[in-house]
């Protein structure tokens, strides 16, 4: 297990390095730089001075090298757009994205798994059919569509505040009120993210439990006198968990892409939003930093999912060792 984790960690580091370097170099190759955006009305001489001050006039290789030696000390440079260290910006925003993603995963799990067990353990009937229909519909609501629709409903009815993470007055609120404020801003982005995830979890759990119910050991547990409920909870469900846990690793990726869209639609100040702003302003170091934390986010998420899978299934552990 230790060596397996170490290898994964090495791969993740390589990934972060390649992704952030190529993001930096690609953005550098792009036409224009930060000065063409923030200094629109400025004459050429001032612009040149700005570029010298920001170090943008140096050759690409030199810029890259100085950035890289900073990265080795976990210093991702200064954001040209916000004039703050990239690492502080990133840690703030990454936390916001993590809050969103975690809440979405939890919600999707709480909805998807029980419904999947329910619909999978009954072959026919109205209830499972309704659950299945809702799931297939839910699968077809990508976060972009879902968040636009929810924002529309919220704006129309005024049930929930729309846009951002806190209200404008959020700065001078007491702790409790501040948390409640964030809580009232969360449902829209979280629901938009969670809906397709919950639907795919429900579908997979349903199929997995239907498969597990056909296993001889479940029939044996019924023969020993367990009720259907007991045999599902104690025998069928644990056996069905493996494919379901496997899905979490896949979900991390779509969760990540989804959170970008949802953050842009609902103005949630997360990593995706930051990346978007950085790209539009050609803020090199911020782009590279965002790409790096995106890679970290994905690598970490997949790692957690894999570890869960390894805990649930001894066969995966054995594979990792070989």
């Amino acid at each position: 297990m230790g060596r397996y984790l170490l290898r994964r960690l090495g791969f993740a580091l390589l990934l972060v390095f390649v992704v952030s370097s190529s993001a930096l170099l690609l953005t550098q190759l792009a036409p224009g730089d930060i000065t063409s955006d923030i200094a629109l009305g400025v004459d050429a001489e001032t612009r040149e001075r700005m570029r010298v001050e920001l170090g943008l006039d140096r050759p690409i290789a030199v810029q890259y090298w100085s950035w890289l030696s900073g990265v080795a000390r976990l210093d991702f440079g200064r954001s040209l757009l916000y004039s703050r260290p990239v690492t502080t910006l990133l840690s703030e925003r990454a936390l916001n994205t993590a809050v969103l993603a975690t809440a979405a995963i939890l919600l999707a799990t709480l909805i998807g798994l029980p419904l999947g067990v329910y619909s999978g353990s009954r072959a026919r009937g109205l209830g499972p059919a309704i659950v299945r229909a809702i799931s297939v519909a839910g699968l077809s609501v990508p976060p972009l569509v879902g968040s636009l629709f929810l924002v529309f409903i919220a704006a129309r009815t005024g049930w929930l505040p729309v846009g951002g993470m806190t209200s404008a007055s959020g700065v001078d609120m007491a702790w409790g009120a501040w948390l409640a404020d964030i809580g009232s801003h969360m449902p829209i982005p979280v629901m938009a993210l969670a809906l397709p995830l919950a639907a795919s979890l429900e579908r997979l759990q349903s199929q997995a439990i239907a498969g597990a119910n056909r296993e001889p050991f479940v029939a044996a547990s019924r023969a020993r006198g367990l009720t259907q409920r007991e045999s599902i909870v104690r025998h069928a469900w644990p056996a069905s968990l493996r494919p379901v846990l496997g899905l979490y690793g896949v979900m991390i990726g779509s969760l990540f892409s989804g959170s970008f869209v949802v953050e842009v639609v609902t103005s949630w100040p997360g990593l995706g939003r930051l990346m978007y702003d950085a790209l539009r302003a050609r803020d090199l170091y911020l782009v590279a930093g965002c790409a790096a934390s995106g890679a970290v986010f994905l690598a970490l998420g997949t790692l957690v999912a894999d570890v869960l899978l390894a805990i649930a299934d001894p066969r995966v552990r054995a594979e990792g060792r070989s």
Partner: peptide, 20 residues
């Protein structure tokens, strides 16, 4: 495998933003 673990949305965004 490498492409599969990339943060796809960022890659697409960067590739597109690089061009005019």
């Amino acid at each position: 495998d490498f492409v599969l673990v990339l943060p796809v949305i960022y890659v697409v965004l960067v590739l597109r933003a690089v061009l005019p």
